[in-house]
Write a protein that binds this DNA or RNA. Structure first.
Lengths: 220, 220
DNA sequence: GTCTATAGATGGATAGAC
DNA sequence: GTCTATCCATCTATAGAC
């Protein structure tokens, strides 16, 4: 664990003693991921982190700036990992990876981060939430993020040259919906609906199911 | 147009003169759908409706009660229409409709309501937003909503008896993700990414694409 | 750097006139 | 029923002691 900001110890005071800035970062990410952006105050964050109220403004400038920094870091990390996997898939297939490998590069990073024993479990929920509750700053980043998404769109277009471009873009839209729906609340609802037979903890099985479903959708 | 609350005239004063309570209802629904729950104040709502500040509390009790009433009415209307279409599909197929007809009963109502010339366009966005930003009251309703969703799950289980139940539930989860991702912001992003070739205004074409994608995902 | 105390702004709710 | 004026809680941000 080289990056202290990815730690998430339960002991708030210990967190604060080690590094107040990192404690604020971690507490803010966790509380926002669990309760939503607008429902968490600076007081909540500093109390959870075991630091004083002024820390947020001293270290980050403002509440919005803090949340933006969390968002920017996590999305950058996620995009980097996805791009890496897409690059590897291309290398494996002479520059033209099949649909399933492209989708795996998009699905796998957030799913593996979300596994129960992973430190980044909470970061994935933060990112998903930011997509629907984010501020104007975050939406601006998501617009630039289109250039990142374009690499996946281009790969899919190349993998399905016979398909109308319009169809490929719409199917990518459907695939994005599948990913964004992987929130705690939705997992709980599904678990309740299915009488408890769906276990989201088995991320490799879930990844396989998602790939099966999405690949079939791209095949026709 | 029998229900005055579904009207959405641009002239706020006219709205208020006709029926203040309906004006508040309509303005609140529209503002929340566009800007999010926490970003809209009672002052914003009453100003947009052209009524006085106290109207919200007089007619609805509180801001939360107002939003809950909008949520309850719209979800009830949507569930009723979906149930009706599922019932018709069952009637057409001797009580055992195929996957595509089940999915159509789930997809079609919100998509048709979301067509550009439809008064309910904004209601769909409200409902989608409530799912991720809703209060505790709304989440309680969504839990009862599981009984409504169970009818679709049961129909899918009957249509795919050879498939493990677990698979059917997960695929239903993926399908829900496709539906919930149909937000204005996501359509705009897709439009931008695709260079403008995706037109969400053609809801029948979008419905066909969604059904093709989801049905293929259920076929294997 | 860290903390307490507080300023300054906002928003939900309500009292009371009409 | 409708409105204005206002109360009161809450929150972000900051000043200033240490």
């Amino acid at each position: 664990m080289t990056d202290p900001l990815t730690q998430d110890p339960p002991d708030a005071s210990e967190e604060a003693e080690a590094a107040p800035k990192a404690a604020v970062f971690g507490a803010a990410e966790r509380l926002f991921a669990l309760h939503g952006f607008q429902n968490v105050s600076v007081r909540d964050i500093t109390a959870a982190a075991g630091v004083n109220l002024a820390s947020v403004n001293y270290h980050f400038g403002s509440k919005d700036a803090l949340l933006f920094e969390i968002f920017r870091r996590r999305t950058a990390e996620l995009n980097r990992e996805r791009a890496r996997m897409l690059h590897e898939a291309a290398a494996r297939h002479g520059g033209k990876p099949p649909v399933r490998d492209i989708l795996e590069a998009y699905f796998a990073p957030p799913l593996r981060w979300a596994s129960p024993d992973n430190d980044r479990r909470i970061s994935v929920q933060f990112i998903i939430r930011a997509r629907s509750e984010g501020t104007a700053d975050m939406r601006e980043v998501l617009k630039n993020d289109v250039s990142h998404l374009a690499r996946f769109a281009d790969a899919l277009l190349a993998a399905r040259p016979g398909l109308p471009k319009e169809d490929v873009y719409w199917r990518l839209h459907f695939v994005l919906g599948m990913v964004h729906n992987n929130r705690f609340a939705e997992f709980d609802r599904l678990h309740h609906l299915s009488g408890g037979i769906t276990r989201e903890g088995d991320v490799e099985a879930l990844l396989r199911r998602m790939l099966d479903f999405a690949e079939a959708g791209f095949s026709a």
